[in-house]
Design a protein around this nucleic acid. Structure first.
Lengths: 121, 121
DNA sequence: CGGGATCCTGCACGATACTG
DNA sequence: CAGTATCGTGCAGGATCCCG
């Protein structure tokens, strides 16, 4: 499956209102979703690391974003019964597979963002 | 540039708060941005067509999303001085290039969305 | 250290009406 | 047909406090 036309032919109604794809899209593409996933592409990280690595995110949003992604099966949470507590987050296989497609997109954005924003109409 | 690590090494601070990439990311990955772009991947379309093809979008959001994407240089607007008015929207070369990276991602989402949502914790 | 609970605010977004 | 203008509102998301 390569083109949208093929995708549509095979799955009519995909991306229509109320379709699950919309939900997933909102989770993955939402303001913080991508950023968390990208951060985790660097490898397993602890809560505090994520908080520091994703500049601008609040604790609340980090918590809820992680929970959503965990429910979606993209992120795996591992808590160690120690004191002080230590919790690690990592991409699942599914999440890693997804990032295979997302990272090139991010690279493209990084390459073109300056051009797009600095060249106002 | 393939991995995030490489990207980071080359452009430190990319995706940090206030970075232009954040803006572009919000435009492209925003709730309606992707959907509009995906719709236009089918080819040039008129206002009314877009409105009908993107189920659930309001006139207001369609208007503002199109304007944003046009400013970003991803979408080209062509108005014909006729009566009744006719306006066509199409991807620019830049937009088409972007979709090269987005469509595979959308296909992935379409393939996995059902699995992700229907398998609740 | 890693969060959950709570409160509050802005603005993203929808609905409706009007115009060239 | 292709929009703008105006008005309301829900919820995303920030700030703060607290707890295991």
């Amino acid at each position: 499956m390569v083109s949208l036309a093929e995708m549509r032919a095979e799955r009519p109604g995909t991306f229509s209102d109320g379709c699950p794809t919309r939900t997933v899209l909102d989770h993955v593409m939402g303001k913080w979703g991508v950023l968390v996933l990208v951060a985790l592409s660097d490898g397993t990280q602890r809560w505090g690391e994520l908080r520091r690595n994703i500049s601008g995110i609040s604790e609340k949003m980090l918590a809820s974003t992680l929970k959503t992604l965990e429910t979606d099966g993209l992120v795996r949470r591992t808590a160690y019964p120690e004191v002080p507590p230590r919790v690690e987050y990592a991409l699942t296989d599914l999440g890693a597979d997804l990032m295979t497609h997302v990272l090139p997109l991010m690279a493209w954005v990084a390459d073109h963002a300056a051009t797009m924003v600095e060249r106002p109409a």
